[in-house]
Simulated scan of single mutants.
Amino acid sequence: MKKCLLCLGTLLLTLGVFTACQTSSPNDSQSKARTVEEIKQSGKIVIGVFSDKKPFGYVDSNGDYQGYDVYFGNRIAKDLGVEVEYVPVEAASRVEYLVSNKVDIILANFTVTEERKEKVDFTLPYMKVALGVVSSDKALITDVEDLKGKTLIVCKGTTAETFFTENYPAVNLLKFDQYSEAYNALLDGRGDALSTDNTEVLAWAIENEGFSVGIESLGNIDTIAAAVQKGNQDLLDWLNNEIVELGKENFFHADYEETLAPVYGEAADADNIVVESGVVQ
């Protein structure tokens, strides 16, 4: 009997140790974000980006990350003196990846909103956008009122989803996790139109004949910024200083010319999209 009790006690102790190890994972919901010095010492910064949102964050035919946000991420890593690891995120997972410390920074076309500010800390902005709506030229949507009773495709966790849910409940929303799924649904005719940032729908329409952006600007003019875990003041301060300093060399205009201009051509003006040194003009 004593031997059985001893075995049982040993088993419970082992399970307790195992459980403790499991709940103290460095990437759990209570995990503390890394400081700038800790990132430098590790030799690597981990940045969450989109993998299917050309030309802002995507994986090219060689398996490499490219795009406007990635161009910025590469410069951050260079100025920190570390390597960069890109982690693919979806719109709805951006906040969670910071809260759970899966990444150090999110650079994924992240629109600054009051609701999101409660969960993450945003840097100074580096881009400005509004919502846009793209649809087939055969049944072009040119006014938001035209969407009533129709199906609008959006991605979960985006400002487009929030905007239409709050302001146009008569519009039927077809929601997807990934942008590639959403755009495929539009191509397949599963929805009448698709809404997301106007900079994105413009780029997509240019590359997809038969589709146009019938509503070029909807809602407020918002800003895009990098984000870090709530309370990570050290990394936030470093990034804000980086953005200010990069503005002195017109870095984000150079980023635009390298990554966005080849897509937009004359259809867009860099000054209507780019923000330098965090100052919105």
Score class of each variant (00 low, 15 high):
53 K>Q: 15
53 K>I: 11
54 K>P: 11
54 K>F: 14
54 K>L: 14
55 P>V: 07
55 P>N: 04
55 P>H: 06
55 P>C: 06
57 G>V: 10
58 Y>F: 14
58 Y>A: 11
58 Y>M: 08
59 V>M: 05
60 D>L: 08
60 D>I: 07
60 D>R: 00
62 N>P: 02
62 N>R: 01
62 N>S: 13
63 G>L: 09
64 D>T: 11
65 Y>R: 00
66 Q>D: 06
66 Q>H: 11
67 G>Q: 10
70 V>C: 07
70 V>T: 07
71 Y>Q: 08
73 G>A: 09
74 N>R: 15
74 N>W: 12
74 N>Y: 11
75 R>N: 13
76 I>C: 07
77 A>C: 04
77 A>K: 06
77 A>T: 02
77 A>L: 09
78 K>V: 10
80 L>R: 03
81 G>V: 12
81 G>W: 12
82 V>N: 07
83 E>D: 15
83 E>Q: 15
84 V>G: 09
84 V>N: 09
85 E>F: 14
86 Y>N: 03
86 Y>E: 03
86 Y>G: 01
87 V>G: 04
88 P>A: 03
89 V>Q: 08
90 E>G: 11
90 E>M: 14
91 A>D: 13
91 A>W: 00
92 A>H: 11
92 A>P: 05
93 S>A: 13
94 R>H: 04
94 R>L: 10
95 V>I: 14
95 V>A: 00
98 L>A: 09
99 V>C: 02
100 S>T: 12
100 S>A: 10
100 S>M: 06
106 I>F: 07
106 I>H: 05
108 A>K: 02
108 A>I: 03
109 N>Q: 11
110 F>W: 02
110 F>I: 00
111 T>A: 13
113 T>D: 10
114 E>Q: 12
114 E>Y: 10
115 E>Y: 12
115 E>I: 07
115 E>Q: 14
116 R>Q: 04
117 K>G: 13
117 K>F: 00
119 K>G: 01
119 K>F: 10
120 V>D: 05
120 V>K: 00
121 D>M: 03
121 D>R: 04
121 D>I: 02
122 F>E: 09
122 F>C: 04
123 T>P: 08
123 T>L: 07
124 L>I: 10
126 Y>R: 04
126 Y>G: 04
126 Y>P: 06
127 M>I: 09
127 M>T: 06
127 M>L: 13
127 M>C: 12
128 K>Y: 01
128 K>G: 03
129 V>L: 11
131 L>F: 04
132 G>R: 02
132 G>I: 04
132 G>P: 01
133 V>Y: 01
133 V>P: 01
134 V>M: 14
135 S>N: 08
